Simulated scan of single mutants.
Amino acid sequence: MTMLAEQSGVSKNTVSLALKNDRRISVETRRRVQQLAEKLGYQRNPVLSHLMAELRKTKVPKFRYTIALLNAHPDSLAMKRHPTIAAWLTGCRRRGESQGYHFDTFWLHDPEINGARLARILRSRGIRGAIVVGLFNQNRLPPQFDSLWPQIACVVTGVRTHEPTLSFCCVDHHALMLEAVKQVLALGYKRPALVLSHTVDHLVEGRFSAGMWFGQQALPTAQRVPTFDKADGSDSCFQRFKKWLERHKPDVILTLHRDIKIWLEDLGYKIPRDIGLVDLEHNPSAQEWAAMEQRNDLSGEAAVDMLISMLYNNESGIPESPRATLGSSHWVPGVTVRKQR
């Protein structure tokens, strides 16, 4: 490193940044240092690099860069109001701040901004990377930001986007369903059923229903209850649910819709005596439910790790081969299910 610095006429810190292809160093200097390093046969020492990384962990991180948090939810206050988004943000901020990164927040439905304007704002603040949170009901980003994605490094939390498809981090919904079905079968339930909005299942490309279908293959055909599409909370939907319940007679329902408990109680069912209930996303407001803990905060942490790696390697734009990090979930026992006789 010292020899490279002396022969290229720059500091050792500049050499280090140039070898990492850091944009803070001019293109000309980066090229000169990299060509000299290749000529001299310079190679990074992986053991030393690991040691330095461990030493840095013992220090209080200093401010490095700012990351943009892009709220894609129609509600400008969703980051505070929606528990899933809040969990993603908790993980993002925890991991980002531990590495010395700060966050600036932008709302993608703000009528005052579009892709071109947001790109200018990010450039003026020296922001090169962003994390998208809050995509619900659809997995397509607002079209007015199409010009932004080729210019920055970006990771999405929660879902895989289309047009464009960006790298993303989320819970493994398919594995989550398999584990939930496994747990209720272990309790002795014979007719598990999924109650879920088609919109939600479509958002995750059918991974909930696919996991349910695969989990039901362990059951005789006659015990495989079809999924009920809970479109909304209307009376007509309630009446469809009542008919579905009477016809298929599930003994445990797996759902994201906690108002199903009210519907069942209105129909005279006692939980868990008459039917079991499982929440597919453990929620602080329903601690008593048996549930699957998605650990969305870990998806937030993974998104920051992925973005930092992209920034470190000077990657930006729409990736040819988007990356995906899928997180695990685990079973949380609760009073809404019980061991079957």
Rank of each mutant, 00 (worst) to 15 (best):
R247L: 11
E38G: 13
V335T: 05
C170P: 03
V181P: 01
A180E: 08
I253W: 03
E28M: 09
G9F: 01
T336R: 11
P192L: 15
K270R: 15
L254R: 07
E293H: 05
E281R: 09
H109P: 04
L254S: 05
A119K: 06
G91F: 01
A303Q: 10
L280V: 10
C169K: 00
S167W: 00
Q35P: 04
A193M: 09
E28Q: 14
E163L: 08
N283T: 06
T325C: 01
R160N: 07
P192S: 14
P272Q: 13
P220Q: 12
P192K: 14
P61F: 04
A37Y: 00
Q138P: 00
I127F: 02
M306F: 04
S321M: 10
K59T: 11
S124K: 14
S329A: 11
D297V: 06
A153I: 08
A18V: 10
H82V: 11
R23E: 14
T161K: 05
C154F: 00
F103M: 09
F106L: 00
K39S: 11
R32C: 11
D229S: 12
A291M: 12
M3F: 07
P61L: 03
I127P: 15
G41F: 09
N45G: 08
V278N: 03
S16L: 08
V33M: 11
V304G: 03
V200L: 12
L69I: 11
K339I: 03
D229N: 15
W213D: 01
Q239G: 02
T105S: 14
D22K: 08
E246W: 11
L178Q: 09
H248F: 15
M3N: 12
L196R: 08
V15R: 05
A116M: 14
G115R: 07
I275A: 08
G276P: 05
S167C: 06
L17H: 06
T58N: 09
P220K: 12
A175Q: 06
I275H: 02
T58L: 12
K242E: 10
T66Q: 09
L277G: 02
T84V: 13
R120L: 10
L311G: 02
F106R: 01
N283S: 09
S316P: 06
L185V: 05
D232Q: 07
L89W: 05
L4I: 11
E281T: 10
V132H: 01
F106M: 00
C169R: 00
G9P: 02
E320T: 08
S167N: 06
A291L: 11
K230R: 15
V60F: 11
L141R: 04
H162M: 10
Q223K: 11
G211V: 01
G41I: 13
G158V: 04
L311K: 02
F63K: 08
M292D: 06
G317P: 06
V156I: 09
V184Q: 07
L40K: 15
Q144N: 14
Q183I: 04
R64H: 13
W88L: 12
E288W: 10
T227M: 13
I253R: 02
L4D: 06
D22N: 14
C170A: 07
W331T: 05
E28W: 03
A130S: 07
V225W: 05
V15W: 00
D279W: 04
